[in-house]
Structure formats: C-alpha cells, structure tokens
Design a protein around this nucleic acid. Sequence first.
DNA 1: TCTGGGGTCCTAGGACCC
DNA 2: TCTGGGGTCCTAGGACCC
Length: 396
Amino acid sequence: MRRIIFHIDVNSAFLSWTAVKMVNEGKSDIRMVPSVVSGDPSDRRSIITAASIPAKKLGIKTAQPVSMALRVCPSLVIVGGDWAWYKECSEGFISICRSYSPVLQQFSIDECFIDMSFRCKADNAVEVATRLKNEIKSKLGFTVNVGIGSNKLLAKMASDFEKPDKVHTLWENEVEEKMWPLGVRDLLWVGKKTEERLTSYGINTIGQLASLGIGSLTRLVGQKFAHQLHENANGRDDSPVETETAEAKSYSAERTFSKDLVEAKDIDKALFNVACIVAHRIRRDNFRASTVSMFVKYNDFTVAQKQCQTEQPTDVTAVILNEARRMLSEVWDGKTPIRQVGLGVSKLTHESAVQMSLFEDPKMEYYREWDMEYDRKKAEAEDARMLAYERKNRSE
DNA sequence: TCTGGGGTCCTAGGACCC
DNA sequence: TCTGGGGTCCTAGGACCC
C-alpha cells in the first residue's frame, strides 16, 4: 500500500515563536526585519539559534557567531530565547498535528511526521495539508511548511523546499524532477564532510549520487552509510513513523567560558556545575549511569576526551564529579588554556537496588543527602517559575 | 568572523575470553 | 609452543541532526 506521510516543520521556529510572544505584548513583529535569536545576546561568543527571513537574505545563518552577523548587519535585532514559551508553542503545534493523525512522531521541538495513509488520499493530500497549515497559523500565530511524500525522507525533503508557509509534495514520480537536480548537501544525512568526499569524486547532485554504483559508494563512505545514501538518493525509505518516544541513551552538559581559562579552580567550578546538572537530570528521570565521560576543548579548538566505567551504576553527583576530575587531570597539562568543558553519562539503567558494599565510601550517605537537598531546591525554583509564568499569562 | 548546546549512530582497534 | 577465529566489551574519534 502506498503510504502518505506529512512532515510539518515550523518556519524559523525560535524566531517565529519569540515574534508571536512580542506581538502579543504589543511589540513590533521581528519577523519583518533582520533579527536573530541567540543564547546570550550580550555575549559575543554566542551563536545564532534562529534567523528571520530578512536576516537570512543578508546571508545570516543559524550557527553563525553573533559577532559575525553584526558585521554584516549592525542594526540586527538580537533577542534571547524563552524555553518555557517555546515548549508551550511546540505542544500547541504538536497537538493540532495529532488531531489530523494520531500516528505522529515528534522529530524535534519544531518538527514532526504524521502518517496520513488512512486519513486522506493522494488526490486531496495537498488540500488537507493546506488546512492543517492554515489552522496552525490562525490558532497559534506562526507559519509552518508541510512536506508530503510516500515516506518520511521524501516528506522531509519536501518540507524543505520553498519557505515559509508552503505545502509541497515529493512523490516517487517527482523524485527525478524535484530532487535529483539538488546538490548532494541537500540530501538528509549528507553533511559537510560527506559533501566534500562526494564532490571530490565528481558527485555533485543527488541524481548523480542515485546512479552511483554501491561498490564505489562503499569505498567512499563505508558499507552501512553507502547503503542508506543509495536508497535515500533514489527516494526510498521504509522507516516507520515511530509513535513511541525512545528513552534517552545519554545525558550531557557543557559550558563555554567567556574567556579561555587556565586556572584549575575555575575549570573545576565549571565541572562541578555541569556535574550537578547532569546528575540532577538522571535522578529526575530515575536513571543510573555506568559510564562517565568528560571532555575539554582547548583554545585552538582541539578536543581531549576520556570516558570510564563506574564500579556500579550511580546517580550521585559526587561520584560522577570525582570520575570527571580524575579524567581531567589525566588529559590536561594544567597550562593549555581551556575554552569549554563538558561532562556526560551513558549506559543508563533504571536499576533501583543499589548493591551495598561493605567497603562503601562512608561519605556516600552525606553525598546522597546533598543531592536530595539540591533536587529539592531545584523543584522549588521550578514551581516558583511556573507559578510566576501562569500568573503573568492570566494577567494578559 | 571566530565559531553553543544537546543528542544519536557508526567505526576501528585493543583487550580478553572461549 | 604456537596458532586461528569468533564474540563481546571498552575507548577514542568522527559524522550527522536540530
């Protein structure tokens, strides 16, 4: 049976969502002028999270440093993000999409797939998609693109065609006309490195990639990836719309300093902070981790990383932090300036029974109490924030 | 111009066991 | 004494996504 898949993608999500909020507050619509959302607008080290269409027309792109964009456009409007609001917008948009089909896979905060096979016919798919797009615009105030195809890949490629506020189809019989002329970089999973590798062999378009023998492709990118690229370039993808959200496989946090650091105590402080964040998150989600990893990025952007196994699965901040400290001392010479530190945990389990060891660190009880206190304070802060947020929304 | 933060998956080599 | 081959786990590194 021929499937009908929609891919719904919010146009410049964080920027649109911030604009909606500002318009609600009676401010001018930043979608109409060159504007960007960045992590910390006052920090020249931060990068652009989302850009308005007028900004994009000036060559300003996502992931570009703010300082670079300011050179191009000194009058650029820079705004910070509001995660609580973004979450609300995301939930609103997902819930409208779900009302069109319960077979929905959330792909990220601002993208989802829905399986419409039993909800419409190929003949009226564009009409239904247009209705969905318009409903989101009128109820929530922001625009989306809807891509329609017979699989997830084609739907996703289609939603990336002309923006904003558009519906596009990419059926199998349109692949040759609409997808093959595009550059290889436009194909999902082809990033910078793969593009370089392919173009250096004279493979410039998706069409050329589609006709390349699997043997040659394997020599370029390895067997598994070659198979996937070959299928995708030919418009084939049999992956289902996954309605279950998979459990997290890892958690991590990282901090980039406003100035590169050389003082061990400063770096340790940052390591402490990220350890608190990561450990708190795994406790919140009822996980314990058996692998701890850390990395440092030096001022020349080279990265040193280490990972290790813990004696038993743990969610204790101090245990995770101590492993990270030990590994840091093993990789860092104590002199090279450090730009960024990060810490992660993986190999997660929900095991709740902690194996008691006769030789357990006597400080462990104290560590656990410290964590409980930390979690309690976090929860309090979160409650206060939610309350303030609701109060503010009610008064508007 | 000077590069964030949070994830997933894959590969390759070495250690260790049978 | 020397040898092979398969399986699994771990580590490091790389590529991609939003």
